[in-house]
Design a protein around this nucleic acid. Structure first.
Lengths: 137, 137
DNA sequence: CAGGATCCTGGGGGATACTG
DNA sequence: CAGTATCCCCCAGGATCCTG
């Protein structure tokens, strides 16, 4: 069939198309933990424990799970120095590296603009709770 | 207290800090639907129905819900032409516009590199399922 | 140290029907 | 047309315990 996106896997790349693989790619790289893990690995190759310490609020389970997913999709490489005690290091693949600048830009934007978001939210919420009497302080 | 990030709301901006507002900002702007909505609005101001049609796979519920969240945080502006039938238009705020380039870069990366992800995934899965004897169909 | 296996809960998110 | 309200399911993800 000559459908617009050839639903079998090949499609005109479009993140707006729910069936296109590009959408899955986008959801992977913009995932809650993916962004942080990829950014942390962009700073430097890291071990499991180091990642756990670097990324506040992540659980061992989600770290392992997300790392596996990223590795499966070729964004992260797992290097197992077969020693005892175990020593495993994660690093970005070339593909992963090609993404890091954009992800870091995203982080930077959040770090530079969150006060604006906070302020907007405060204003919005204040307006909803008390649309009247805003004459002082 | 002079804790490193002043857990009351003011902190040294760090997305890796689970308590920092920058983290919340990051999670908002990297949300599954947020990215697509913001990108769609970066293309042009749009109405509810237009967004629904533009963004494949989104439900009315998630669209409304995410739009409200984005508006609350000052990234999107809602313009209600008080007509009947109802006519509401959404557009990026200045703050939202300052983010669009990065989000579009993210989309573009996904659209340009998803074949690499697909290939890596295929390789990875093939290796796991049958590391042996892959000579025929 | 890296990470598998299990159990369990909250809420993300779909479907459907209704309203101004 | 642009939403709101309800019901309900499913799974992301935490807590805990166990292994190589």
């Amino acid at each position: 069939m000559t459908s617009p996106h050839e639903q079998n896997g090949q499609c005109v790349p479009d993140v707006f198309d729910a069936e296109c693989s590009a959408r899955h790619a986008l959801e992977l790289i913009s995932g809650k933990w993916s962004v942080l893990i990829l950014t942390a690995l962009a700073e430097a190759p890291r071990r499991n424990g180091a990642l756990l310490r670097r990324i506040g609020g992540i659980s061992q389970k989600m770290l392992t799970q997300t790392l596996k997913d990223l590795e499966r999709n070729g964004l992260v490489e797992r290097h197992d120095l077969r020693t005892v005690p175990l020593h495993v290091e994660y690093r970005l693949s070339a593909l992963g590296s090609s993404l890091s600048a954009t992800l870091i830009a995203l982080d930077r934007w959040a770090e530079r603009n969150f006060p604006e978001l906070d302020a907007a939210r405060a204003r919005h919420d204040a307006a909803r709770l008390g649309p009247v009497a805003q004459t002082d302080s």
